[in-house]
Structure formats: C-alpha cells, structure tokens
C-alpha cells in the first residue's frame, strides 16, 4: 500500500509539471484559437533566464520572478508576430509559432551556448509516513494548484477574464461589445508566456534544459491541455494528473520504457470514451 501511495505521489508530482505547462496552452488557445507551438520555449527561456540571474548573484525567488516577467514580455512579442495581420488563419499562426520556436534555438545558442543547464532548487525530501516527495516537486504541486485556482477565478469571475473568454466563443459579438479582440489575444500570449516561464523556472532544477528541450516539455503539456479540450483549465489539470499517475504506475509496477506509450494510450482511450458519449457532431 505504501508503495502504491509512493507511486501515486510521484505521479501527482510529475502530473503537476505537465499541468503547469498545459496552462499556457489553455490560456492562449482559449482566447486566440491558436495552438502555440512555442509554448515549450517559454519554459526553456524561463529556465535559462533564471539561471543567468542566479549566477549574477540575484537571490532565489527574485531571480525566478524576474525571469517569469521577462517571459511574459517574450510572450507578448510572440503574440505580436503569431497573430500577424488581422485575419491570419490559425493554421498559419500555428506554423508561425513553430517558426518562432526554431528561432529561439538560434537565440539560446547565441546567448547561452548549446550546453544543457540546471541550477539548484529546493533540496531534500518531504516525507509523510512512508511516502516521500522531493521538496521541489512539492513546490510545483503547490504552484500548479494555485495557478489553476487563479485561472478558474480569473476566467469565471473577473470582467477581464470574461472578456477574454468572449473573444474565444464569438469574436464578432465580442467586438460588438467593444472588446478589442486583437489586444485581448496579445494579453493572452503575455499570460501564456508568464505561465510557461513559471513552469520553466520550477522545472529546471529537476531536469536540465538545453536549447531544444522545448519539444519534450511541450508534448506532455499539450497532452494534458488537450484533455480539457484546450479550453478548460480544470480538466487540463486532471489531464496532467492522469498522464503523470499513469506513467508512475507503469514505471512502478511494470517497466518504465512503456510509461509514455501506455499513459498516452490511457489518455486516448479516455478521450475516445468522452467522444462516444458526446455524440459525433459536437466539437
């Protein structure tokens, strides 16, 4: 039983990292309808920026915070390019974000080189009973929970959040209500950048990042986000947990080589089950 709980804890820990990455996808897609292929880049840049700041002697906490602010600004720039002229179709925007992701490789290599980096986060374990979790993971789980609560409140309760949501459901109606859809899109990209950066600064102490680490980070985040249809933050959180727990269970009770394949198969099965319940025509 202790073993099961240990795997469950490990799954929740990694699931929270996936969920945290997923938030960025959700915010951007929900508002702009663009799947941001550059989402993993925010995490990579967040990690590198925090690394540089820490090395320059900035204190922990402040360094990470500044890195997140900078990735928010980078998110804004990505949004400016990706949204392009008014009327750029989402497929074109998607390819543009992919282009920006590749462009970031050039930037990272120029500024930081092509070697992987990492820095120290919280060290040691938090043990309750026989079940333990690395402190850094505890921090991530906490950050993920807070982020999701904040997002749910933001979209559900605040005027700005509702305005953002209005853009996604009906752009014309939103415009008639006097909401600047384009500006809202940029705002979404900035928030998405900050969320990606947050995931990055928290993840880098656990796993090293290099210029092209964004793909691996983004795939898991995308998987979690898609679980909630890319629009529902809470379901995306659930998606992350399903993925993380399934992986940990496979690694714990079977063989870790199959953890990704089996976890993805589980997610697919759940999605197909959802689809069959919804009926064929509903998006």
């Amino acid at each position: 039983m202790t073993l099961f709980l240990q795997y469950l804890a490990a799954g929740i820990a990694s699931g929270s990292t996936f969920a945290l990455v997923a938030t960025g996808f959700v915010v951007i897609y929900r508002v702009t309808g663009v799947i941001n292929f550059a989402q993993g880049v925010f995490a990579v840049l967040g990690g590198f920026l925090a690394y540089s700041l820490l090395h320059a002697g900035v204190a922990h906490g402040l360094a990470e915070g500044v890195a997140v602010l900078i990735t928010a600004a980078i998110g804004l720039v990505v949004g400016l390019v990706a949204l392009g002229r008014r009327g750029t179709p989402p497929l074109a925007s998607l390819i543009v974000t992919l282009g920006l992701a590749i462009f970031s490789y050039a930037v990272v290599i120029t500024v930081w080189g092509d070697l992987p980096i990492s820095y120290d986060g919280l060290s040691g374990l938090l043990a309750i009973g026989g079940v333990s979790m690395q402190r850094q993971y505890v921090l991530i789980v906490g950050a993920a929970v807070v982020t999701f609560l904040a997002l749910a409140l933001f979209f559900g309760r605040t005027y700005l959040g509702m305005a953002l949501t209005a853009c996604s459901s009906d752009q014309r109606a939103a415009r008639l209500m006097g909401i600047d859809v384009w500006r809202m899109g940029l705002l979404a990209f900035a928030v998405g950048g900050a969320l990606g950066g947050l995931a990055g600064v928290l993840l880098t102490p656990l796993q090293p990042v290099q210029f092209d680490s964004d793909v691996g980070i983004a795939v898991n985040g995308f998987a979690a986000a898609i679980f909630g249809g890319l629009v529902r933050p809470v379901t995306a959180f659930a998606g992350g947990l399903v993925l993380g727990v399934a992986e940990a269970m496979v690694a714990g009770y079977y063989r870790s080589s199959y953890e990704t394949a089996i976890a993805l198969a589980v997610m697919l099965a759940l999605m197909l089950w959802q689809a069959s319940r919804r009926g064929p025509t509903e998006e």
Binding site: G84, S93, V96, L98, G99, L100, I102, F103, Y105
Partner: peptide, 11 residues
C-alpha cells in the same frame, strides 16, 4: 534563417 523564412512565408 529557416525560422524567418517560415514566419515570413506564413505571414
């Protein structure tokens, strides 16, 4: 350059 080509073409 690959990234820029991609971005410019698609925009």
């Amino acid at each position: 350059v690959y990234a820029l080509v991609l971005i410019v073409v698609m925009l």
